[in-house]
Amino acid sequence: MSSQQGVILYGPPASGKDTVTTALTELDPTYAQFARLKVGSGKAAGYRMGTAQQLHELEAAGEVIYANFRYGNAYAIDRPGVDEAFAAGVPVVHLGQVDGIRALVDGYPADWSVVLLWCPREVTEQRSAGRGDSDTAARLAAWDATREDLDAHPGMTWDLTIDTTEASPQDAARLIDQMLAQRAGAATA
């Protein structure tokens, strides 16, 4: 097993991936959100904005671990980006597709902790509207797609499941941090 530890946060839109990641980095600055390569428009914060040509070159070189398309954009997890994230600390990768989790766990050797962050659909709607999203309807469609994705993969296992309507972001961060410490201790024992 690799000694490199990484965290994958899976969940529907507005389930708390950004908020929990912020709480993790406040708890320990070695945690950092992995900035996926984004080709398209809209929100740039939290992404490495790129061009279709850059994505094509990475794909041609076999350096794309996983790519998906949502909200009219392409999002990629690329090997050079993950290498840089591990060199800087403990990457926290946000995903909304089980296939993306499997691609990353199978395609990049590390000790990945996979965490399901969950909230009901109406909470996604409330949080999306509350933060001023202009595409709440698309986020609800993505929530539906996440639910379908989970239903289509009943054998998917989680290292930790957190209901973000019950756990504060700080509590969720502490649970994740404790889990990684336990895993690191077990790996060295």
Rank of each mutant, 00 (worst) to 15 (best):
D144G: 10
A142L: 11
Q178P: 08
S3R: 09
A189N: 07
R139F: 02
V92Y: 02
Y31G: 01
F86P: 00
D149C: 10
A186L: 07
R79N: 05
A173W: 10
A88T: 15
V105I: 10
T157P: 08
Y31I: 07
W112R: 04
T188E: 04
D99I: 12
G62N: 05
W112A: 02
R36A: 02
R79I: 10
T157C: 03
I162M: 01
V105F: 00
A110G: 06
S113Q: 13
D78F: 09
Q4C: 11
D135I: 13
I8G: 02
T30Y: 06
S15H: 08
G132H: 04
G6M: 08
Y75G: 01
D151T: 10
G81W: 02
G155K: 11
G16E: 01
Y71V: 04
V82R: 01
A60S: 12
S41P: 00
A141Q: 08
E84W: 08
A110W: 08
A152K: 10
Q178S: 14
S2Y: 07
N73W: 06
I8A: 02
P29R: 15
D159Y: 11
R147V: 15
R70Y: 15
A32S: 15
D111Y: 11
V82G: 02
G81D: 03
L150Q: 12
D151M: 10
I162P: 02
P13C: 11
T188Y: 05
G185V: 06
V123K: 02
I176M: 03
T22N: 01
A173C: 09
E125A: 14
P29F: 12
S113I: 13
D83E: 13
L150G: 12
W158P: 05
E59M: 06
D111V: 10
G100T: 12
A186Y: 07
M1P: 14
A141W: 10
S168C: 11
A167H: 14
L150R: 14
N68Y: 14
T19M: 01
K38T: 05
N68W: 15
A142D: 08
A23Y: 12
